[in-house]
């Protein structure tokens, strides 16, 4: 075999073994191209992902699976309880407890339980609706289940405005200082939410003549209800 061969001459002559090998390799390359193109488009890129990425994806899926499994378990338990009770008493109790929870959220019934009492005294008239809204939001974020300002129940649709002539109007009820906020929930968490740096207590303390304090009575009673 010659070391250098003109392709035209090589094609005319009876092909040598090396020439056949070239053709076979080119055919294999064509085959390989289609296979790798298909592998890439087929498995949504997972097959090309690195082990680290796969571990991350797997962890995510595991966590999601566990969460869904526990949700399914609790739903199954509820279903079994509802199915298993021969009378409708269980279902009634379930519905009643749910209605009670919703009523507390909607503010149509009173509530009592652990919680905190925030008192904001404002002799200088410097505390406005902004501070009160901040306080309400902080308490909601901290998990307050029921809220009352003065004698007004605070629910999702409650409005807090600065009326002319000082004070604060909550849902149209004019309130004057000191403002008393009652919140039911985890007392420690709620108190922490009020005391965080830059939080409600700090804000009030920065206004002249205003003082805020947090008390944690053993039992907070929320008596104000919405019609």
């Amino acid at each position: 075999m010659r070391a250098v061969r003109r392709p035209e001459l090589g094609s005319l002559r009876r092909p040598g073994r090396a020439r056949v090998a070239v053709w076979v390799l080119l055919a294999v390359l064509g085959f390989g191209i289609t296979v790798s193109v298909r592998a890439h488009s087929g498995a949504a890129g997972l097959s090309n992902a690195r082990p680290d990425d796969l571990v991350g994806i797997l962890d995510d899926l595991d966590a999601k699976g566990r969460r869904l499994q526990s949700e399914a378990d609790s739903l199954q338990e509820t279903r079994d309880r509802l199915n298993g009770s021969d009378s409708g008493a269980e279902a009634l109790a379930e519905a009643r407890s749910r209605a009670e929870g919703l009523a507390i959220l909607a503010g149509t019934v009173g509530a009592q339980g652990p919680g905190i009492e925030v008192t904001i005294d404002d002799s200088g008239g410097r505390v406005g609706a902004d501070v009160l809204v901040d306080a309400i939001q902080e308490l909601r974020d901290a998990g307050a289940e029921a809220l009352q300002v003065g004698a007004v129940r605070v629910v999702a649709s409650t409005a807090v405005v600065d009326p002319t002539g000082g004070g604060i109007a909550v849902d149209g009820h004019h309130l004057g200082p000191p403002y008393r906020i009652l919140a039911i929930g985890d007392a420690h968490t709620l108190a922490q939410a009020m005391q965080i740096p830059g939080g409600v207590l700090d804000t009030v303390a920065s206004r002249d003549g205003a003082v805020a304090s947090v008390a944690t009575p053993a039992l907070v009673r929320i008596t104000a209800v919405r019609p």
Binding site: V22, W23, L26, A27, L29, G30, F31, I33, T34, R38
Partner: peptide, 13 residues
Amino acid sequence: IGALALAVGLAVG
């Protein structure tokens, strides 16, 4: 013929 072989490989794939 090389190009032909490549085409054959693609076709087979």
